[in-house]
């Protein structure tokens, strides 16, 4: 499928390859790398159902490693919208790009973060909830809505959404890392190699604050619905809040 898309792109078309994220990009990673990215072809990949939203269907249909896999591949953009407005913003960016891109989204349908399509340069983090304090939250995809819910209980911590993971506005991440005492990063993706890793790398390289990541760690051992699996991964509101408040207490001067 990806090879055919690469051929179509060489022939002058602008192909979109759609699949569940568990299969696109995971199953076809080598084809994405060689056939598309190495040749810098303008193929758009859509990975639906990213994260653990295909809950009861089991490990084969869940996908918490796609961002990590594609972050290591050159020449492909990665976007991860949080709501329908960010989806349109991301889609416009993908179609305007001259290179390959990957759209990751779930089906959590957690509600809107924004009131309109964001008007921001590609790669910017978008303020999802203004706030104050010593800690900030950066989240992506389904976890932005959750982060906004938690903000008040954390003393009004500001929340940024990262709809574009690559290329991300590094200077903006760096400045958040300097402005706050700590950053919580939340994503429905493995703690290894996702947004948390990306933020930690940038902040560590530029001498910023503490970065504490929240994401998935293991395969889901048991069957369960979406809400159940989020709690198994510690991504439900109460576990996230407990983890954040204990980190804030631990790090307090």
């Amino acid at each position: 499928m990806v090879g055919v898309a690469a051929g179509l792109a060489k022939a002058g078309f602008r192909p979109v390859v759609y699949g569940l994220a568990a299969f696109v990009p995971m199953r076809v990673l080598e084809q994405i790398k060689i056939d598309v990215c190495y040749e810098e072809l303008p193929v758009v990949f859509v990975g639906d159902g990213a994260g653990v939203v295909y809950a009861q269907l089991g490990t084969s249909h869940q996908c918490t490693e796609d961002v990590a896999a594609l972050r290591a591949v050159p020449n492909i953009g990665i976007v991860s919208p949080a709501d329908r407005f960010e989806l349109q913003y991301c889609w416009k960016h993908l179609l305007q790009s001259k290179g390959a891109g990957y759209l990751r989204f779930g089906k959590a349908d957690g509600g809107d973060v924004h009131a309109a399509i964001p008007d921001a340069p590609v790669g910017d983090l978008l303020q999802a909830r203004p706030g104050k304090g010593d800690w900030a939250i950066i989240a992506t995809g389904s976890m932005v809505v959750a982060a906004c819910r938690l903000s008040a209980a954390l003393g009004g911590a500001p929340v940024w959404s990262a709809p574009v993971l690559h290329p991300i506005n590094r200077a903006q991440v760096e400045s958040i890392g300097r402005a706050f005492g700590g950053i919580f990063v939340v994503e429905e993706h493995s703690m290894a190699g996702g947004l948390g890793g990306l933020v930690a790398e940038i902040v560590a390289e530029t001498g910023g604050c503490r970065v504490i990541r929240f994401g998935t760690r293991q395969f889901s051992e048991f069957c369960g619905d979406y809400k159940y699996l989020l709690s198994q991964h510690g991504l439900d509101d109460s576990t996230l809040l407990a983890g954040m408040t204990s980190a804030m207490a631990r790090e307090a001067p």
């Binding site: 084969s60 048991f222 069957c223 369960g224 159940y228």
Partner: peptide, 15 residues
């Protein structure tokens, strides 16, 4: 089958 906390996921699973 298909319930929270069981091993019986919706599709074949070697566990």
């Amino acid at each position: 089958y298909f319930s929270n906390g069981t091993r019986m996921k919706g599709l074949s699973d070697a566990h």
